[in-house]
């Protein structure tokens, strides 16, 4: 099973300097967060989708569709009951709380999709290199990208271990909550052990290949900040600034929502 999101495609967005991709990621987090009204959030959502489509990365949506669906339904439902509005429809549900719920659901999904597009267009090495170019020390950037890389490895090991225990008759999906928690013990011990062993192996492999041998490390991947980067980042920055202005002047809010 392949758990990496990265898609090896040759689009202008893939070829961008990783710093630009990091800025775009930051701005595409900001866009949905700035808005409250679902229509405005939907606008931010559309911008992110358009960026993803330009990077031909939306095929990964299929792989995270369940998460997206679950998060949308869950947060919409929760906020429909917990937010308060002036036009009460029934019990705790008001017109505003429904709008707020939908807005929040869209917001979270938009941010997840932004993250997905980033990971679909950026290799781990580019992420760490982008962070270095932005001033982060190499060991920290490397630790960050390694952590990203280890997630799929551990998920894979976890899946194998779960299969091994289910083959012995472990039925994880039945029983009361406490019973189910107890059933996870046979999974956790081997997972921890495997994790420790493979981190140990990784550390040895790194040292053995000269990690940290020289203070001036070079990078095989080279990037150049060109007009393209400036245009794309500039466009996103302009959107964020405009949106901030509109939010500060209250035009993206849900009228009648009580906090």
């Amino acid at each position: 099973m392949n758990l990496y999101l990265y898609l090896d495609k040759d689009t202008p967005i893939h070829r961008m300097d990783p710093r630009a991709k990091l800025f775009v990621l930051l701005f595409s987090f900001a866009l949905p967060l700035l808005n409250q009204h679902p229509l405005w959030v939907a606008g931010a959502f559309a911008v992110i989708l358009a960026y993803g489509a330009a990077a031909r990365s939306l095929e990964n949506l299929r792989r995270i569709r369940q998460i997206l669906f679950f998060i949308f339904v869950f947060s919409t439902l929760v906020w429909t009951f917990f937010a308060k509005g002036t036009d009460v429809l029934i019990w705790r549900v008001s017109r505003q709380s429904i709008l707020y719920g939908i807005g929040t659901g869209l917001k979270l999904d938009a941010m997840i999709i932004a993250g997905m597009v980033f990971l679909s267009t950026t290799k781990n090495e580019e992420i760490s290199q982008g962070l270095i170019l932005l001033g982060l020390p190499y060991p920290m950037a490397f630790a960050f990208s390694t952590a990203l890389r280890l997630v799929p490895t551990f998920v894979g090991a976890g899946a194998t271990i779960a299969q091994a225990q289910r083959s012995r008759g472990l039925d994880i999906d039945s029983g009361s909550f406490i019973e189910r928690v107890r059933k996870y013990i046979p999974l956790l011990a081997p997972i921890f052990l495997t994790a420790i062993r493979s981190s140990d192996g990784l550390a040895m492999a790194l040292e053995g290949k000269g990690f940290g041998a020289s203070t001036k490390r070079t990078f095989y991947l080279r990037f150049k900040w060109t007009a393209r980067e400036t245009v794309v980042v500039g466009l996103f920055l302009a959107l964020v600034l405009a949106n901030t202005y509109l939010t500060l002047t209250g035009r993206t809010l849900i009228r009648g929502l009580m906090k």
Binding site: Y4, E125, G210, R217
Partner: peptide, 25 residues
């Protein structure tokens, strides 16, 4: 080999060692 290969593509895996020693790209 699962724990010692950590790059996202073949080329970068091979580049990792020389990069550490500051070899010219």
């Amino acid at each position: 080999f699962e724990t010692q290969i950590f790059s996202t593509n073949v080329e970068l895996e091979v580049a990792f060692g020389p990069e550490n020693f500051g070899v010219d790209p």
